[in-house]
């Protein structure tokens, strides 16, 4: 009983803290309080930091999808549908979810570690002393960077995964890349692509909210920062799956 009520308190407390952080950061953004240089810097950091791993994951998942669908396609003789099915799975679900998960592991974890180090060394208090609200000043540019960059990087990774799929299809089942790409282009997948991108705005916001909140709340030195990074990726992953299910049911 004590354990359950403790867990419930933690969940409620964390949700509340995330809501407060998001509200403060987003109002600061809307009022134009986020420094342009800070925001540009965060955008550069977030994208440069996560791009290599995102590209690698999209290449690998593109190849895996082709490898695993090859036996279906061959047994049904449905070569002309291969590109369409690949595009459907990649654009609507797998691309956005995998990119968001890896983005949380890279950019989200980094943000928590960074803000956590500032919290531990008393830099947040220094900001408060100068009359600057640390949440607005530090979180707003990070929110902006993640909400803007995650959709862009998802679009890029979709393209990379489709390229990998085209190459993979040529190697694995001997399907010409032109045929593969044509099957995607003529499959009427624009809606799936746009819906896939639309949900990444929510993912980006959620990852920013989780990573900033856990960063600001770090207590207890380096060990506390390590725990916060761990919690950040775990809660971000949960948030991505929950948002994805709700979004999928809401729009389809």
């Amino acid at each position: 009983m004590g354990l359950t009520s403790n867990a419930a308190t933690t969940v409620l407390e964390t949700t509340g803290a995330m809501a407060v952080t998001s509200w403060t950061a987003l109002t600061a953004l809307v009022r134009g309080r986020a420094g342009r240089r800070q925001a540009l810097r965060q955008i550069a950091i977030v994208s440069v930091d996560s791009l290599p791993v995102l590209v690698l994951i999209s290449l690998l998942s593109g190849f895996v999808m082709v490898l695993e669908s090859a036996s279906y396609v061959e047994s049904l003789g449905a070569f002309s549908l291969m590109g369409w099915a690949f595009g459907l799975v990649t654009l609507s679900q797998l691309g956005p979810v995998l990119v968001a998960l890896m983005f949380a592991a890279r950019a989200g974890a980094r943000t928590t570690a960074e803000l956590g180090a500032m919290a531990v060394t008393g830099q947040l208090d220094a900001l408060r002393l100068l009359g600057i609200d640390p949440v607005g000043y530090l979180a707003a540019p990070r929110f902006l960077a993640m909400i803007v960059m995650l959709p862009l990087m998802t679009a890029l990774c979709d393209a990379i995964a489709i390229g990998a799929g085209a190459v993979g299809a040529a190697v694995v089942v001997g399907l010409g890349p032109a045929l593969f790409l044509q099957s995607i282009a003529q499959g009427g997948l624009m809606d799936e692509f746009l819906l896939g991108i639309a949900r990444t705005f929510l993912f980006g916001g959620a990852i920013a909210a989780v990573s900033c909140t856990f960063g600001f709340r770090v207590r207890g030195g380096a060990a506390g920062a390590g725990r916060a990074v761990n919690d950040c990726v775990v809660v971000s992953a949960l948030a991505v799956f929950v948002i994805d299910l709700i979004f999928t049911i809401a729009v389809l």
Partner: peptide
């Protein structure tokens, strides 16, 4: 240690 913790997650995912 914080840097190592974040890169550990990414590396094991890759």
């Amino acid at each position: 240690v914080g840097v190592a913790a974040t890169s550990a997650v990414v590396r094991s995912c890759v």
